[in-house]
Measured scan of single mutants.
Amino acid sequence: CHSECLGNCSQPDDPTKCVACRNFYLDGRCVETCPPPYYHFQDWRCVNFSFCQDLHHKCKNSRRQGCHQYVIHNNKCIPECPSGYTMNSSNLLCTPCLGPCPKVCHLLEGEKTIDSVTSAQELRGCTVINGSLIINIRGGNNLAAELEANLGLIEEISGYLKIRRSYALVSLSFFRKLRLIRGETLEIGNYSFYALDNQNLRQLWDWSKHNLTITQGKLFFHYNPKLCLSEIHKMEEVSGTKGRQERNDIALKTNGDQASCENELLKFSYIRTSFDKILLRWEPYWPPDFRDLLGFMLFYKEAPYQNVTEFDGQDACGSNSWTVVDIDPPLRSNDPKSQNHPGWLMRGLKPWTQYAIFVKTLVTFSDERRTYGAKSDIIYVQTDATNPSVPLDPISVSNSSSQIILKWKPPSDPNGNITHYLVFWERQAEDSELFELDYCLKGLKLPSRTWSPPFESEDSQKHNQSEYEDSAGECCSCPKTDSQILKELEESSFRKTFEDYLHNVVFVPRKT
C-alpha cells in the first residue's frame, strides 16, 4: 500500500485506493498535508475557505447554543480562536489581540433580562453583547459592586439597553466600559436606550469621564423622579442622539420631579488639616426662599486615587461607600458681607490618608415646582503625618564578641513616609551569675543571650482551647457569634421535631 494509506488498500502504491488515510483526505486521495488554498479540518480532512465560511455563517444565523462559528488559524479551520487571539470578521482569520481579548457573548432569543446578581454573573467577562440587555433589578445585597464585577467589562451592545423598574439602582456607572450601543435591534418605538419607572436612579454616568455613542435609535425617559433633566440632556449631547427624540420621548413632568437638581456650584473657602482632623468651610448658599434650606450634607471617604465619582458603590438597598454628615444651616444675616460661612470639623480620621470630599445642599421643593440647590466639586484632601507606631517583631542576635545583629519589621501604621529608623542602645553591667558559677561542674549549661522565638506554653494553649472559665478566673470563653447562636437554635429545633416524629412513629394507638 501507499505510504499515506492506513489499515489496508485495494490497489498497491495508489493513494486513492486506501481504506483510511494516515494524515489527511483531499478529493478522494490521501495526502501528507493540505496544500494551499485548503485548510486542515478536524485533523483528517482538507477543506477550502468557502466550506469553513459556510459553517461560520450557519452557526451565526441559527443562534443555536453550542454550535461553533468556525475560524481560520495556522492553516486550520477550527471552532474558535485560541487564547490571546480574536477573529477578523472580513476573512475569519485569528489575529493577536492588542491588550485583553474581546469576548463576544451571543444571547438566546436576542435579549437577556438581568433581574438578579445570579443572572448578571452569566455575563461575567463579556466585552461584546450580541443582542439586547434588559435591566430589571428590584433589590439585593452589595448590588453596585456585584454588577460592576460582572457587567463592568461590557464595551458594546449590538441591540438596545433597557432599564425598567430597577428600584435598587442609583447610577449606571457599573457599566464602566460601555462605549457603544449599535441599535441594530430596537425596542418598540425605535428606541435604543429605554429608561422607565426607576424610582431611585439619580445618575446615568459621570459624563466628564465617560463617552457613549448610540449609532441608531432614540432615547426614552419616563417616570424617573430623581433623575434630573440636565442629566438626560447631557446624554443626548454626548451620545449623538440630540435631535432624534420626539416631543413625548422625554417626559418633562415625570423626570426629576422629586430630585434636588443642583444648578449652582458650592466653593470651599477654608481648608485646614491635622493628622486626624480636617476643618472645612464653604461659601454660604440661600435659595430664593431661605426657609427652603434644610441644611447641608457632607460626604467623605478614603480615596487612594483621584478618580472618585459621587455615586460609586451606591445602591438604593443601603450600600453606600460614603460617610454622610448632616449639618444645620448657619444663622442668616441681613448683611451679605457678614454672612457666616458654614463648615464642619471632621474628626477621627487616619493620618497621612487622602480623602475625597464634597458637600451639597438639602432643600425642600418650592411652590413653583422649581428645584434649587448647590453642590461642590469633589475635592481631595490629605491629612498630615504623625509619629508612626512601633516597629514590629524586633530580633537581636550576637554573632561574635563585638557585634549584635538587630532586625525588625516595619510598623503596622507608618502614618507617613518613613525615611529612617533611630536605634538606641545602652551598655549593661555583666551578670554576677557568670562569676559565681563553678565551671568545672559536669552538665553545666552556660547562660545564653542568643534570641529564641517566643512560644506559647501548654497552660496558655489549654486556656485558649477551654470553653469555660478556669477556677483562677484568668480566662473566659469568647462570646458566641450570631451565626453560632442561630445554628444552635436550628439544631435544637431539629432535635425537638425529630423526637416528636419518633414518638408518633414508635407509639401507635392500640386498636379498641
Rank of each mutant, 00 (worst) to 15 (best):
K103H: 03
K103L: 09
L107A: 09
L108I: 08
L108A: 13
E109H: 14
G110L: 09
G110W: 04
K112P: 02
T113G: 06
T113S: 13
I114Q: 00
D115M: 03
S116N: 14
T118F: 12
S119N: 11
S119Y: 09
A120S: 09
Q121V: 05
Q121L: 12
E122F: 04
E122R: 12
L123V: 12
G125Y: 05
C126E: 00
T127Q: 09
T127M: 11
V128W: 14
G131N: 02
G131R: 00
S132G: 09
I134K: 01
I134V: 11
I134P: 00
I135Y: 02
N136W: 07
G140R: 09
N141A: 15
L143Q: 15
A144V: 15
L147N: 02
L147A: 04
A149P: 03
A149N: 14
N150F: 14
L151A: 05
L151K: 00
L153W: 14
I154H: 00
I154N: 01
E156W: 07
E156K: 08
I157H: 01
G159C: 01
G159L: 00
L161R: 00
L161E: 00
L161K: 00
I163P: 00
I163Q: 00
R164P: 05
R165V: 10
R165F: 15
S166E: 01
L169M: 07
L169Y: 04
L169W: 01
V170W: 05
S171I: 02
S171W: 02
S171L: 01
L172T: 12
L172D: 00
S173W: 07
S173M: 10
S173R: 07
F174V: 10
F175P: 00
F175C: 03
K177V: 08
K177E: 15
I181H: 00
R182Q: 03
G183N: 01
E184D: 15
E184R: 08
T185M: 08
L186N: 05
L186G: 14
L186S: 11
L186P: 10
E187C: 13
N190W: 01
Y191H: 11
F193L: 11
L196W: 14
L196I: 13
D197I: 01
N198D: 01
Q199A: 06
N200G: 02
D206M: 06
D206P: 10
D206N: 09
W207S: 04
W207A: 05
K209H: 15
H210I: 05
H210T: 01
N211K: 14
L212N: 01
L212C: 02
L212Y: 02
T213D: 14
I214Y: 02
I214E: 00
T215H: 08
T215R: 13
Q216P: 02
G217P: 01
G217L: 01
K218S: 01
H222Q: 12
Y223W: 09
Y223L: 14
N224L: 05
K226F: 07
L227H: 01
L229S: 09
L229Y: 12
S230W: 04
E231D: 15
E231H: 12
I232T: 14
K234G: 13
M235G: 04
M235F: 04
E236T: 13
V238K: 15
V238F: 09
S239A: 11
S239F: 03
S239Y: 04
S239N: 03
S239H: 02
K242C: 15
K242D: 14
R244V: 06
R244G: 10
R244N: 04
R244S: 05
Q245W: 05
Q245C: 08
R247T: 11
R247P: 08
N248K: 13
N248Q: 03
I250E: 11
A251T: 12
L252S: 14
K253H: 12
N255H: 03
N255K: 04
N255L: 06
D257V: 13
Q258C: 04
Q258F: 03
A259R: 07
A259L: 13
S260L: 10
C261M: 01
E262G: 06
N263C: 08
N263H: 04
E264S: 12
L265E: 06
L265A: 03
L266Q: 02
K267R: 11
F268K: 00
F268Y: 05
F268C: 02
F268R: 00
Y270S: 08
Y270T: 07
I271A: 03
T273C: 14
S274T: 12
S274L: 08
F275L: 13
K277A: 12
K277S: 06
K277R: 02
I278L: 08
I278H: 00
L280Y: 00
L280I: 05
W282M: 03
W282S: 00
Y285N: 09
W286F: 05
P288E: 13
D289R: 08
D289Q: 03
D289P: 02
F290N: 15
R291S: 13
R291Y: 15
D292Q: 14
D292F: 09
L294Q: 04
L294H: 11
L294S: 10
L294D: 07
L294N: 11
F296V: 04
Y300Q: 05
K301V: 05
N307R: 01
N307M: 03
N307A: 14
V308S: 10
F311Q: 08
D312H: 09
G313D: 02
G313N: 14
D315I: 05
A316I: 01
A316T: 15
W322L: 02
T323F: 06
T323D: 05
V324K: 01
V325A: 14
D326L: 13
D326I: 07
I327A: 06
D328A: 10
D328E: 15
D328P: 15
P329F: 03
P329L: 05
P330S: 06
L331T: 14
L331R: 11
S333I: 05
D335F: 13
P336T: 09
S338V: 13
S338Y: 05
Q339S: 09
N340L: 10
N340D: 15
N340R: 02
W344F: 04
W344V: 05
L345R: 04
R347G: 02
K350H: 14
W352R: 02
W352G: 01
T353M: 02
T353C: 02
Q354V: 06
Q354P: 09
Y355E: 00
A356T: 03
I357A: 08
F358V: 07
F358Y: 09
V359T: 02
V359H: 01
V359S: 01
V359I: 10
L362I: 11
V363D: 05
E368I: 12
E368N: 02
E368P: 02
R369P: 05
T371E: 09
Y372K: 11
G373R: 02
G373V: 03
A374E: 02
A374G: 13
K375T: 12
D377R: 11
D377K: 12
D377Q: 05
I378R: 03
I379F: 04
I379D: 01
V381E: 09
V381F: 01
V381Q: 14
V381L: 15
V381Y: 02
Q382M: 15
Q382N: 13
A385R: 12
A385M: 09
A385T: 14
P388F: 05
P388R: 15
L392I: 06
L392N: 06
P394Y: 05
I395H: 12
V397A: 11
V397R: 09
S398P: 12
S398I: 04
S398Q: 13
S400W: 05
S401V: 12
S401R: 10
S402N: 15
Q403L: 08
I405H: 06
K407P: 00
K407T: 15
K409R: 12
P410E: 14
P411S: 02
